[in-house]
Amino acid sequence: MNYKTQGKMLFIATLLLVGVALFMLLWGQYPIDMASFYEYLHFKFVGTSSLEPETLSLINNIILDIRLPRILLAILIGAALATSGAVFQAMFVNPLVSPGILGVLAGASFGAACGMLISDNWLVVQIMAFIFGFIAVALALMIGSMVSNTRSSVILVLGGVISGSLFTSLLSVIKYVADPYSTLPTIVYWLMGSLSMAQLHEVLAVSIPILLSIAGMIFMSKYFDLLSLGDEEAKALGINVKMIRIIAILLATLASSLAVVMAGIIGWVGLIIPHIIRMLVGPSHRLLVPLSALAGAIFLLLADAISRLAMSVEIPIGILTSLIGIPIFIFVLKKARAAWN
């Protein structure tokens, strides 16, 4: 595949994302037709409109207060989780890892819950989430290397399972001591994963670090291919393996921890999206990483649509991505073995 085809694929995926996002903006309990949407935009940018002022203000509310923040958040989080998943898989040369499996999501949620317990400041929560997300990966790696000094895919997964369980237990301790009337429900609902709390200004604030870390990972993606050759060969080809690993792991941890802070634990996205993309376009990370970002965003937008509309009450999106993700993963695992073995 040459670089022109790659550019075309990225362009098509971007178009698809924009299309799905636009559709989500108009579709819902209160559908907005294209004509009204056009009138609304006309009003926003030119100042005149043929619509009634009440209709305009209703559309304005629906779009700016309800749908747009949610859509933007779904895009950010889907992209963050899928990109981090692709990057973790590249870093550990292990197609079985993801932010969830390495314990990052559990660690970050423990950190965020601690943050909620000790402070009302959102920044404290974010920083705590990042720190514990990072501790969780480090722990998974440590346990992995303690048990076996070979670089076994399975051992690292086991390390992640242990690290994840540890932080899940610690999180239970926090839940146990949290105020059952205020803090506990907040923590529980947030953990199930939801995009509905999103406020536009919060989303915009968190979008900066998330987008920067995703952009960083995309820029580094050409180095990731070399890591799968083994450290020695990668060094001989001229890259600083240690530095690339550290920076990439930090960026992936940051992106997935912030996703946890904003929407709780949304599992499986980071595992299945890179697999699906690898199945479709091959393992080259220059294409895999940005395409995973776009596909993750599209996937979460669609999952959110289902979570809103499948039942009369909203299903927490974290539960939904697991329900969708598990069968897809079983299917993908069977098909994808050829691509990494």
């Binding site: 080809l237 890259i239 600083n240 091959g282």
Partner: peptide, 22 residues
């Protein structure tokens, strides 16, 4: 490593790669 790679190419014994590159 970059400077070294600008002068020397290393050709290891062939081996398997976990991801299936072209």
């Amino acid at each position: 490593h970059k400077e070294i790679a600008e002068h020397i190419a290393y050709i290891p014994q062939y081996h398997n790669v976990p991801f299936n590159y072209s």
